[in-house]
Write a protein that binds this DNA or RNA. Sequence first.
DNA 1: AGCGTATCATATGAGTTCCGTACCATCGCA
DNA 2: TGCGATGGTACGGAACTCATATGATACGCT
Lengths: 166, 166
Amino acid sequence: MSSVPSQNGEPADSGRQRRRLTAGIKGSLRDLSNQLSLLNHHVGARVELKDADLDCLDLVNRHGPLSPSALARRAGLHPATMTGVLDRLQRGGWIAREPDPADRRAVAVRALRSRNAELFGLYEGMNAAMDDICAGYSDAELELLGDFLRRTTSAGRHAADELANG
Amino acid sequence: MSSVPSQNGEPADSGRQRRRLTAGIKGSLRDLSNQLSLLNHHVGARVELKDADLDCLDLVNRHGPLSPSALARRAGLHPATMTGVLDRLQRGGWIAREPDPADRRAVAVRALRSRNAELFGLYEGMNAAMDDICAGYSDAELELLGDFLRRTTSAGRHAADELANG
DNA sequence: AGCGTATCATATGAGTTCCGTACCATCGCA
DNA sequence: TGCGATGGTACGGAACTCATATGATACGCT
């Protein structure tokens, strides 16, 4: 809603420059993805959680109580695998399985907040660094960045869906 | 920590707005990370590669020939695990292990380009979507975005290093 | 030069995880 | 009320991870 594209009635040379910039964005995005995965991996190692476990925990923390099967779909995991993931998360005191009053087959996975401070502490370095980085931008620039990130996420979701279903 | 007065001569409201924007960026970044991981997961499934395998392949593709141990450090994997990863990648024809002429203990892992078109095809949807997104920005905006991504990646690297070593 | 230690990649084996399948309880619908 | 579909999980074989051990080689120190 905020980013305003600028039209390009520009010199003939600008095409190459543009491609370079776009390729740079895509490359940086790959690096970023790798690096964030690695960060998650190390955080997970500190609390004895697999990468996928941490992903699922994040999903539950972020998107409220969810059923195991919905979680499995979102995380791209086999339902039977999700049982194991949830077992580990439950054993570690990260989540609780509650009966769903509306459907007695179903289970609602709820995040317990008790260990969240611990997690937050592990992300504190990254968190502070992001605050620093963001502090250098104007409000308008931050909106531009946020908008870009959301659009890119949406593109990723779309591409993943296409691979999964199409 | 819900109400911190603004310290400078700005409108009383601006601090809150800023925090909202910054928090939004961080949240979007998490979503993005999850989504890109999921995309990689699906891509990997199409070519029978684990997530970690794909990460390693990307590292080799991107950062040239590397030794297994250097790769293990970069990917946050145990050296013995890396042997298994490389076995799979080699069996699939993604990489080759070459002797390092400078150090006869060492091995250089080289990416074979033969199957890269296949991978590229799987990322085609995302690739095109990113082109679309980028097309809406001016050169200056693209530079801003790229700079942000690089800085964020660097922050992630720093935070991960601190967790791994510190 | 020679010896000890560090490093490199990988083999081995125990423990863990993944996932196809099966199973039972429950739901939605005709 | 009956029947197919769905939800969650148990089970078991295959695959994976990782600590340790091993053999080869490099490097530092005297």
